[in-house]
């Protein structure tokens, strides 16, 4: 169970998160939805303890993540896996070395066993033949899958996904979506997925949280979200350009901005 309690984060004068509250159940798939630039990655970085919120609390079970700093986060971090938006694979290591790295670091397993584990993780994402290539020799979608294999290296309890399918072709995107579903249904891994792709979320999520202006706009099962009467929610799921949500990220009025200059 992950609980986000009233977190706020401001960069400069841009209030990115503004009293965000929600909870995500263990062994379930929770999708967090938001507009681009709406603070999804920021929220995820707070959840993994990489960024400190200005206020508020994140709890994993009875562990208060926001109270921990530096090395004291390590026990939590060994229990989670993170798929970063830009993959963040180590470019100086091969695919196999990237996946082996956390295993070597945190277990005393024999070289051969590490190798077998790497093979298994790569098989899971369908890339067993690519272990000796370097990340830059792979396509974006393949890098994403390697990054996922690395996130799974230590058999985490929770995996955080930042935009797992953006920039991928529809087939690979649905392969990844299915993978998320399998991780959850077959291995019981808690999945927290941050995305702006609505339709996948509707297919596999146990719970959907809509993030808007740094707060939770709506939350519930896909069914509940689909049936919501709120026009804002409807615009989110239909992706219509016309509606209450403006695509402008600035808080200042355009006319005022022009007149000042």
């Amino acid at each position: 169970m992950i609980t986000v309690d009233n977190i706020s984060k401001t960069y400069g004068n841009r209030k990115v998160l503004d009293g965000l509250c929600f909870s995500a159940e263990g062994r379930k798939i929770t999708y967090v939805f938001g507009t681009s630039g709406g603070g999804k990655s920021t929220m995820l970085k707070i959840l993994i303890g990489a960024t400190a919120p200005d206020s508020g609390e994140v709890r994993y079970g009875d562990l208060d993540i926001t109270a921990l700093r530096g090395r004291s986060l390590d026990p939590y971090r060994k229990r989670i896996g993170v798929l970063f938006q830009n993959n963040a694979l180590l470019n100086s290591l091969t695919v196999a070395e990237n996946i082996a790295l956390p295993i070597r670091e945190h277990t005393a397993l024999d070289q051969n066993i590490v190798h077998i584990m790497v093979k298994m993780k790569l098989e899971l994402v369908g890339l067993r033949d690519f272990e000796d290539l370097y990340p830059e020799q792979l396509s974006g979608g393949m890098q994403k899958r390697v990054a996922l294999a690395r996130a799974l290296a230590l058999d985490p309890e929770v995996v955080y996904f930042d935009e797992p399918t953006s920039g991928l072709d529809p087939i690979i995107a649905s392969v990844i979506t299915k993978l998320i579903k399998d991780l959850n249904r077959l291995l019981g891994i808690t999945c927290i997925v941050v995305t702006h792709a609505v339709h996948e979320a509707m297919k596999i999520a146990d719970k959907i949280i809509l993030l808007y202006r740094g707060k939770v706009l709506a939350e519930g099962t896909p069914q509940e979200i689909r049936e919501s009467a709120d026009p804002l929610v409807q615009q989110f799921i239909t992706g219509s350009p016309d509606g209450p949500i403006s695509f402008h990220a600035s808080s200042k009025d355009f006319r005022d901005d022009l007149l000042v200059g």
Binding site: A50, V82, F84, A88, N91, P102, E105
Partner: peptide, 17 residues
Amino acid sequence: TMKVAEEILALETMAIN
């Protein structure tokens, strides 16, 4: 370059010093 590509963040997240 690793810092910019969030590789260092990834290391920290894997509890690697």
